[in-house]
Design a protein around this nucleic acid. Structure first.
Lengths: 120, 120
DNA sequence: TGAATAGATGAACAGCTATTCAGCCATCGC
DNA sequence: GCGATGGCTGAATAGCTGTTCATCTATTCA
């Protein structure tokens, strides 16, 4: 069974229209949002562009660390950069990602862990 | 500035109604979905309950590995377990998570990386 | 030009984690 | 009870990654 066949089998079996590469891509997105520091950075520039320095101040971390994270987020196109003078402003580019994030933030804030289901 | 104050400052500055603990909780969710193997497991039982063995077969990995991952997913309440005889079926419990996942899978599958925006 | 500010980069390190392997517990059919 | 099947658990390991520190580039202002 080849790799392509395996991916096909997975897509068939799951009923989810998504192949191996797309799963990897999705996983990579989640990975980038899975680090608390990075997630805070993303949330910080969800609704408006924020400069690197401002982000560092808000989160009380070093500009260097912010920059490192921003590079990853920029590379994955989760954030877009916009230079104004000597400052660089970052913001969430994809509207779909933005709404998903807003949605998830609300979901968590509303405490969706109220129901406990136990198997017999 | 205390920890609580910092969290408050963050919530204020970002405009996102979410505190430190909730950010951690959200990050943890994303972390669980960020591993390709684990993500495949979740996607496999998105729409219907799947047994451990079946999951292992579909993904062509060892039942042991599946079980390890399932324990984490169950602990985080991302998946719910349902024992039938000697088989245990798992499925995505939270409808909100399920729709988010379906949505993101579609988003990735449709290739949302078509537009490249470059800063001046 | 020179100083200063804002970000970016590279190396180095500590901590975490996905995977494998071996063995254990529970449930069903004989 | 006995064997077989299905799933769980614990230890061990290899690979990855978030953070820090020092340094470097780019842009503005005097």
């Amino acid at each position: 069974m080849s790799g392509a066949d395996k991916a096909e089998a997975f897509a068939m079996a799951t009923g989810v229209r998504i192949n191996e590469d797309e799963v990897m891509e999705l996983a990579e997105m989640f990975r980038l949002m899975s680090d608390p520091t990075r997630l805070k950075i993303i949330l910080a520039c969800l609704d408006q562009p924020v400069s690197v320095g401002a982000t560092a101040d808000i989160l009380a971390i070093s500009p260097s660390l912010v920059s490192h994270h921003l590079r990853l987020l920029r590379a994955a196109r989760l954030l877009t950069a916009d230079r104004r003078g000597r400052q660089v402003f970052y913001m969430v580019g994809d509207p779909h990602i933005r709404s998903m994030l807003t949605d998830m933030a609300d979901h968590v804030a509303e405490g969706g862990d109220s129901e406990i289901i136990e198997g017999t």
